[in-house]
Design a protein around this nucleic acid. Sequence first.
DNA 1: CTCCTGTCCTGCCGGC
DNA 2: TGCCGGCAGGACAGGA
Length: 284
Amino acid sequence: MPELPEVETVRRGLEPVLLGRRIEDVLVRRFDLRMRVPENFRSHVSGKKITRLLRRGKYILAVLDDGNGFGLHLGMSGRVKVQPPSTDRNTDQNYALHDHVVFMMEEGSKIIFNDPRRFGMVFPIDKKWEEEKPFSRMGPEPLEKDFSGTKFALRLKGKTTPIKTTLLDQSVVAGVGNIYVCEALYHAGISPLKKAKMIHGTRAGKLASAVRHVLEMAIEAGGSTLRDHRQTDGSEGYFQYSFSVYDREGQACPSCVCDPAITGGIRRIVQGGRSTFYCPRKQK
DNA sequence: CTCCTGTCCTGCCGGC
DNA sequence: TGCCGGCAGGACAGGA
């Protein structure tokens, strides 16, 4: 579920409870997440203070006062819950099903990573994290000032794959997933079936701003809650009420003058095994 | 190298 | 009501 806006929403919710705070201890209740939590994770973070809390693509990163840190990925169904200080002991009955990793903060609050499908990850990073594994290959941050149409077009150059699947590639742009790629293509008026290399010049600029705009609006709304996404206080995001095309098969798109009973409205197709929603009349 | 398919795991929803 | 298939926001490995 969680794409850039959901991850950013969670990161912002964690700032007040994590930033500048010390981690007293970590309880790993399940090690077998998407990537196995290493046995030494506890000693890697315990007793350290969090000096920076960042987001890169769909990852949340905490930098610790020794220069190392840890990363968090929510996978498809991950949530992060913030539990205020309490006298509860760390017994199983005080945890919910799928509460896999618990960060116990010095002042008593608990940060709980919960993930039913276990597609998420909690992993250690070191000082050179930017040069390593997923981050070294990751594309530009779409919300950075320098994310321009020209730089974007350069990444699309030569790609024969449809623009929809290309945008899901994290080495092209970081953080965009299945919902927001559909929404951004709609706002840019570009068909998801168009070959990526055909998007250049003005259209690349339009697509870059559409991606940025959709993500910014979604962050403002606290993300989209379809099933699992929650803000750290447990409340839902509400950008799903602003979807133009995603999950709206058969309905009219917002500015359409057509009658969906005749035209069929928003269409759902499958690309790369995943649903794509678009308006064939507004996206060419 | 690029591109495509299958797979990891659980929960939920719709159809029969 | 209950069971079963299909589908879900992601990302990687492996093969063509």
